[in-house]
Design a protein around this nucleic acid. Structure first.
Length: 315
DNA sequence: AAGGTGTTCAACCGCAGATTA
DNA sequence: CTAATCTGCGGTTGAACACCT
């Protein structure tokens, strides 16, 4: 798959018109190696120069994309965790398709990956339900069914989340604008999404019934944070996160990433405000899509990535 | 087993704003 | 100041794979 430089129009620098062909399409192992080597010697940035000097027959754009989305060491490969999915849903409700902005709050995840997740998973469900993914109705579905399920999943996979933040081993997270987050030393060391020791206390019964009456989980807060310390959410309607704004769940999410500038609208939150339209409740229950398609949709890409890494090293 | 259909995600494209000469 | 170039973003595409009939 090759394309002559002259066909690229504006993309190609006018000063760089040369008589060689640019490669397109999937990157080969050799190209990856070349790019990694070049960047390890010269650093990233100045992509057009990099493309010329590295010997890669690629545009600077293509090199940049390959590096940022795939080769960069801190890029996470593999399935999005329920925590990450939850954060994406919440941030998308606030910012819309601002993928790069959302990605900034999911360390190791790229805007491309988040965009793909949204289009392939979230929008797919909207299509199944025959509603516009940008509609208020679909937002309701996400808020009342999907998010609580993800929260359940998070809870289920991390029994220790129920532990109180009063854990004697807890220590303050190094978080610029937050003096309230308490994480165990292990959790802190594990990185932003390993929050198993984060204070997290929810009313299980309310949680379990959330998909039936669409009432967001009621809170049995251990009050490790005060309302004044909780950032204010001003985005689209209240969500399970809003519902839990007075709980340690905020601690959980904040532990997930740098969401300092997110604003939680505590003033507008009330349990009454999160009741769901019955139509969607039935629709969603009948289609049974949440459990099957979303919360449980985990793949096994980690192994593939590790395999590729080994290949790259010639192992 | 084979062909058709659906899904995923890496990569491309066009555009706009930022930077540089 | 202006034009050229670079960079980053969001939308879209298409190859590869999975699933279904």
């Amino acid at each position: 798959m090759k394309v002559a430089m002259s066909t690229l129009g504006k993309t190609a620098s006018s000063s760089s018109y040369e008589v060689f062909e640019l490669r397109r399409g999937p990157w080969t192992l050799e190209e990856d190696t070349l790019l990694i080597r070049y960047i390890s010697c010269h650093g990233e940035g100045r992509w057009n120069l990099l493309a010329k000097r590295s010997g890669l027959r690629r545009t600077g754009k293509s090199c940049r994309l390959r590096w940022l989305n795939y080769l960069k060491p801190d890029v996470k490969h593999g399935n999005l965790t329920p925590q990450e999915q939850l954060l994406i849903l919440e941030l998308h409700s606030k910012w819309g398709n601002r993928w790069s902005k959302i990605a900034q709050h999911l360390p190791g995840r790229t805007d491309n990956e988040i965009k793909n997740y949204w289009r392939t998973r979230v929008q797919k469900q909207a299509r199944h339900l025959k509603i516009d993914s940008n509609s208020t109705a679909f937002q309701e579905v996400i808020r009342c069914f999907w998010m609580p399920r993800l929260i359940q999943k998070i809870q289920g996979s991390s029994p220790s989340l129920a532990m109180s933040s009063q854990n004697s081993n807890a220590q303050p997270l190094n978080h610029a604008n937050d003096h309230s987050i308490l994480l165990s030393p292990e959790a802190t060391a594990q990185g932003p999404f390993n929050i198993t020791e984060t204070a997290y206390s929810l009313d299980h019964q309310a949680m379990n019934s959330s998909s039936e009456n669409c009432t967001s989980p009621s809170i049995t807060s251990s009050e490790s944070i005060t309302i004044s310390q909780i950032p204010q959410f001003s985005g689209y309607p209240t969500s399970p996160l809003h519902a839990m704004a007075n709980s340690d769940f905020n601690t959980l999410l904040k532990g997930c990433s740098n969401v300092d500038n997110i604003s939680y609208d505590m003033e507008t939150f009330s349990l009454a405000s999160v009741s769901a339209p019955g139509d969607f409740e039935n629709l969603v229950r009948e289609s049974n899509w949440i459990d099957n398609d979303l919360a449980d949709s985990f793949w096994h890409m980690d192994e593939l990535w590790q395999f590729r890494q080994l290949q790259g090293r010639g192992i």
